[in-house]
């Protein structure tokens, strides 16, 4: 393991940023979000949860797909610009890191999404342990260890130092490049102490031991037809806050925009909570907010596991718990539906 004093981090950032697009949790107008680092950026590694998740780095809110030019009856296609830049994302928490594996299942299996795949291949993930988990965290319920965040490189901040440990080939490669900034750290006790502290906190978090046993694919119809959805979804505004801050929500829309000389087709995040999500010429298969609400949670807790060996499409980051305007969230769903045996 190696370590670097926190005050030397800006130098490390600018070194990494020379060869890579460096993404860090950056403070802007009161909020912290992952954004591309530049020398004026205010980095905030202490923020437990960025407002949006880290998925932007691989699955940006809007992604240009292809540009068409239309000339009379003829159409020509411009080759898309692929994301070839090398990227480093720094300060990813264990839950967000786990979400990348879930997004891989969605985007790389079957018809792989080339933009996503390429960004994944070009990106080195440096994770950071959560020193101060909060009340809404329930990563433990999904077997995620916030004290050992994995990724290509794991880091811990203890007593003014960032402790650095590469886990993968990509991580070792980055470590070799930046090793001059670090001092060797033979004593793991600081990190180990922090790890046991974190685990102790997590053990007493109210949502850590939430019971997911009810959510299995064979209960699909029973859960779907539960009369409780109505009351659960009653206050839902049908906004997209939960989906847009969620690290695992992956639904998107494909839209065209008429530019000055052509048509830009782009892919952008969409939300199953929006009223027009499934609306088409012949009608709407989910006309009520209850159905849309049910879809979102059924997808995370039943449909996704059914298609992916029982893996839930939720990482317990707790963003929806904290960000929903009307305080509805996946935990309330799990608790309410999970209680009937």
């Amino acid at each position: 393991m190696m370590k670097i004093s926190l005050k030397n981090l800006p130098e490390l950032y600018s070194f990494i940023a020379k060869k890579n697009d460096l993404y860090l949790p950056i403070f802007k107008a009161g909020q912290v979000d992952f954004a591309k680092w530049d020398k004026d950026a205010i980095v905030d590694l202490n923020k437990l949860k960025t407002t949006k998740s880290a998925k932007d780095v691989f699955f940006p809110q809007s992604q240009d797909l292809v540009r068409f030019e239309v000339d009379g009856k003829k159409i020509s296609i411009d080759e898309p610009i692929m994301p070839t830049n090398k990227q480093v994302i720094f300060g990813v928490k264990a839950c967000d890191n786990r979400s990348f594996e879930l997004l891989d299942m969605a985007f790389v299996e079957d018809y792989p999404d080339t933009f996503y795949e390429m960004r994944r291949a070009n990106t080195t993930i440096v994770t950071l342990a959560c020193a101060k988990p909060d009340e809404a965290c329930f990563c433990k319920a999904y077997g995620i260890d916030a004290a050992d965040p994995k990724g290509d490189v794991s880091t811990w901040i203890v007593d003014g130092y960032l402790h650095w440990m590469p886990n993968t080939d990509k991580g070792i490669e980055l470590t070799t490049e930046v090793k001059d900034f670090f001092e060797l750290d033979m004593d793991n006790s600081a990190v180990e102490n922090q790890q046991s502290e974190i685990r102790a906190i997590i053990d007493r978090l109210p949502y850590s031991n939430i019971d997911l046993s009810k959510f299995t694919p064979d209960k699909l119809l029973e859960l779907f037809n539960s009369p409780k959805w109505k009351a659960l979804s009653e206050a839902c505004l049908g906004c997209g806050t939960c989906t847009f801050v969620c690290p695992t929500c992956q639904c998107y829309d494909v839209k065209d925009f008429k530019t000055k000389t052509g048509v830009q087709r782009f892919k952008c995040w969409d939300s199953c909570m929006f009223a027009d999500f499934t609306k088409c010429a012949h009608g709407n298969t989910r006309p009520s907010q209850m159905q849309r609400y049910r879809q979102r949670f059924m997808h995370k807790l039943v449909y996704f596991p059914s298609n992916h060996d029982g893996v839930y499409s939720c990482v317990g980051c707790g963003r929806c718990v904290q960000k929903c305007p009307q305080m509805l969230n996946i935990v309330k769903v799990i608790k309410t539906l999970g209680e009937d045996k």
């Binding site: 079957d110 998107y252 494909v254 969409d270 088409c280 997808h299 449909y303």
Partner: peptide, 24 residues
């Protein structure tokens, strides 16, 4: 079946009926 689709590759999240994607 026919439902609204945007991607037809089981990713955009529209056309599922339960855990089945109509497109895929």
């Amino acid at each position: 079946l026919e439902l609204k689709m945007k991607c037809a590759i089981g990713k955009c999240g529209r056309c599922n009926v339960g855990d089945k994607y109509v497109c895929k």
